[in-house]
Amino acid sequence: MRPFIFDSAATPREAVETAQAWNAGTNGAAHFLAGGTTLIDLMKLDVMRPERLIDINALESSDFGRIVFGEGGLWMGALVRMADAAEHPQIIREFPAIAQSLQLAASQQIRNMATLGGNVLQRTRCPYFRDVSYRECNKRDPGSGCAALDGFSRSHAVLGTSDQCIASYPGDLAQALIALDATVDLASPSGLRRMPFAELHRRPQSRPDMETVLQPGELIVSFFVPAAPWARRSVFLKVRDRVSYEFALASAAVGLDLSDRVVREARIALGGVATVPWRAAEAEALLRGTALDEAAQDAAAEAAFSGAQAREHNGFKIELGKRTLKRALAQAAVMEI
């Protein structure tokens, strides 16, 4: 691991001001350290090379570490540990897709360490990204190429890819947040800003190294999930090589608002198959007003993957992704709420 300067911040202001002052100079990047389950791992592998770490775990005793049910929905601080949100009885009851996405992610040790803010920023598991002995990786080294394009691509994305990167977004929570129309609050020295969570991640296009719209030194403060009609009837379904402790080959977060079995509103986000947490807006539109019969499910699944592009080894994800979505829709439809 390369040397870095380590300090901790006692307040959010101290954290963002320290990071901004550092980043404004000629230094390499300053990074916030929360659970460390991605950052320390990738620093050991020499994939991430921060020159300064600002430990923000002391903020856990503030609102950063709280889960609050308030006016109109659920607030979750960025330093809430995955395990605590996964097992929160009211989240399980009122926002089941959120709880399920967390229960199905990682192991209990990692869920005890990893925070919600860090989780949504988790880096890809693309083996060519994680192994620096591969010279070509546009995420690690912009302009160097992409070893995955002609490499072993079984785990890679089929949606949102570019000719520069096909790395799959690895997380689960982000899909649930998108399906439930969450917003995210971000702090910087110039103040607080709020945006739809679905706008946080950037598709790789020509700059796979720029994974989010976060500015250098900007810090995720919290997530807000509105108590929308489809929040209670929501499901997170994850399909993977092992039954536990494994990344998704395909996943679907689904929320439904039904009236007499007819779909008033549908929300769909897909994981394991895309370069970013993927909202399937066309599929949602096709489901509105239908009775969610098999034909409607088929049409939605076809629409969700109509733009899919497979490489040599990941073509199976297109069919798997469609079936995962259809099963999630069927499960949500029969939920008793």
Binding site: F6, L33, T37, D41, L53, A83, Q109, N112, M113
Partner: peptide
């Protein structure tokens, strides 16, 4: 009291 992975934990933290 909570189980964590010591290989991904900095001692200083």
């Amino acid at each position: 009291g909570r189980r964590v992975l010591s290989c991904l934990t900095l001692a200083a933290s």
